[in-house]
């Protein structure tokens, strides 16, 4: 009986290993609202598959459901890495419909958007627990990274031992301060980029291959 059990375990480990090698890693793109997560996801998807992931917007919480782009094959230095990109809603501790009223939205739409955004955050947190193999954490380098959300999420990611790549986005803006991000999370490597302009994407892809390959 014991022999059978251990044999079955061994076979199961071998088959798991085979499938694990075949299955692309699921990489969640996380970060606060308006950090440029969808812009980055679209940039990566367009560069390697030709398709976009979802609509981008300057209005916070444009992404209210996690969207996935599967089998994105990134080739770096003769090595291929296949990942599934999961673009997640921006994570926040407060959602208020009033912040949408400034964006030409009536109250009813704003309240609905707020509700959907809240569901989206719940979903994003759930995915983080259950469904991602690695995280690309996107921060707006023009804003202060020392926030409760960032600290908590990075802490969760670290506690899960998930490989995490921190990106300091929006380097095309004059007020961008990459060093501020690097100082906030010195235990991680910080890669500057402008997902909108495509600046420094080469390094981003190299790091994706290195971290998630």
């Amino acid at each position: 009986m014991g022999l059978l059990t251990s044999l079955r375990d061994s076979i199961s480990r071998v088959t798991d290993g085979l499938f694990a090698a075949d299955e692309p890693k699921r990489i969640g793109i996380y970060g606060p609202p308006n950090a440029g997560k969808t812009t980055l996801a679209n940039r990566i998807a367009r560069d390697w598959t030709g398709d976009a992931v979802g609509p981008e917007s300057h209005i916070p919480h444009e992404t209210r459901r996690a969207r996935r782009k599967e089998n994105v094959e990134i080739e770096r230095n003769g090595r291929k890495v296949t990942i599934d990109i999961v673009d997640t809603p921006g994570v926040t501790t407060k959602v208020d419909y009033k912040e949408f009223l400034d964006h030409d939205m009536d109250k009813e739409d704003a309240v609905r958007r707020s509700r959907e955004a809240t569901e989206g955050v719940a979903e994003a947190m759930h995915w983080l627990r259950e469904d991602v193999d690695g995280v690309i954490y996107v921060l707006d380098s023009t804003t202060d990274p020392f926030t409760q959300v960032n600290t908590m999420l990075i802490g969760i990611i670290e506690s899960q031992d998930l490989p995490a790549l921190i990106l300091a986005n929006k380097t095309d803006l004059p007020e961008s301060d990459v060093q501020q991000i690097a100082n906030a999370f010195p235990q991680h490597e910080t890669i500057p980029l402008s997902a909108l302009e495509g600046e420094n994407m080469d390094e981003v892809y190299t790091k994706i291959a290195e971290y998630f390959g």
């Binding site: 994570v91 208020d96 419909y97 809240t118 719940a122 627990r129």
Partner: peptide, 12 residues
């Protein structure tokens, strides 16, 4: 309605 506070740790 339309205003929410989220406990991320709890959601996670």
């Amino acid at each position: 309605p339309g205003q929410y506070e989220l406990n991320l740790m709890e959601l996670y």
